[in-house]
Design a protein around this nucleic acid. Structure first.
Lengths: 152, 152
DNA sequence: TAATAAATGTTGCATATCTAACATTTAAGG
DNA sequence: CCTTAAATGTTAGATATGCAACATTTATTA
């Protein structure tokens, strides 16, 4: 059955994404925190490394390339679990600034470790040059799909 | 906010996967068939190109790198919609052979076109060499995660 | 051959994601 | 200033995905 070689890039990329998801979901440190799902972990790490800036939901959308509706719901669930707060800002009533709670803050260091372990595992054996090239490939594909979207 | 350049490969890959998903979900031909979702479309195309072989659920799992449970459920929904049948085979009572219904068959050609359009769009501007390299990168990442999984 | 392990598939329950339609607020253009 | 467009966020309903636990069947091995 081994059809792997004939597989389209798109199929392989989606499969790899599933695998990344499962890998992170089962990371040892993150597993300590029962209520923090994989997606929550990504978002906590993102907010944590942007501590000095204002981060809004739209920034989460862009960072993870998810839709507005998805971001809204995921952050709902994080808020319910006490991982994040939504704060209004003075200059624009549409925006909701996202702020990590102390609990999420305290988990963020371990989660960050999981994220780094995933990244190191993923590109193990890649030279710096290869990593750079890979990053460029991904950006090119991303932009290829984007332009096609806008064209129609 | 543009953190794109510092993003981990894993984050970018997941984002790209979301984008691929949305792109295919909105493909013009597939949209003609109301009840055929993106995932159904992938599976139909897969079964269609394997017409001469026996394809079981486990093969679908492997092709798309999804879990057993997911495959079971997706195929449930395809069966309910009359896109596929599960058939028993004589030599092994565990297996369920998957067979496309005439409806799915007749849709498969157009869906295949969508798939090809996606693929062409995705790697537009890539040389043959780059495509080959990209495919290898993906396989290496996949195997990196796999080995780590088994190690524990 | 009997006990155990491995392979395949299913079910229950939770989360993640999408589209479409909506509401609110701000920005732009006349 | 008023109208319209754009940006941001939410909600409803659907599909996709996962883990854990289970059931059945086949393969291994003692």
């Amino acid at each position: 059955m081994s059809s792997t070689n004939e597989q389209f890039i798109s199929t392989r990329l989606r499969g790899l994404s599933h695998r990344i998801h499962r890998f992170f979901e089962n990371s040892p440190n993150k597993k300590e925190f029962d209520s923090i799902t994989g997606t929550h972990g990504w978002i906590i790490a993102f907010l944590s490394c942007k501590k000095d800036e204002d981060v809004f939901q739209k920034d989460v959308e862009k960072e993870f390339d998810i839709t507005r509706a998805t971001a809204s719901k995921v952050i709902d669930s994080m808020e319910q679990k006490g991982l994040v707060r939504r704060e209004r800002v003075a200059h624009d009533a549409r925006l909701r600034k996202l702020v990590l709670t102390p609990e999420a803050e305290s988990a963020s260091e371990l989660i960050e470790k999981d994220k780094i372990m995933l990244e190191e595992t993923l590109v193990r054996g890649f030279s710096e040059e290869e990593k750079k090239l890979l990053g460029e490939f991904i950006m090119r594909m991303r932009s290829n799909l984007e332009n096609k979207d806008k064209e129609e």
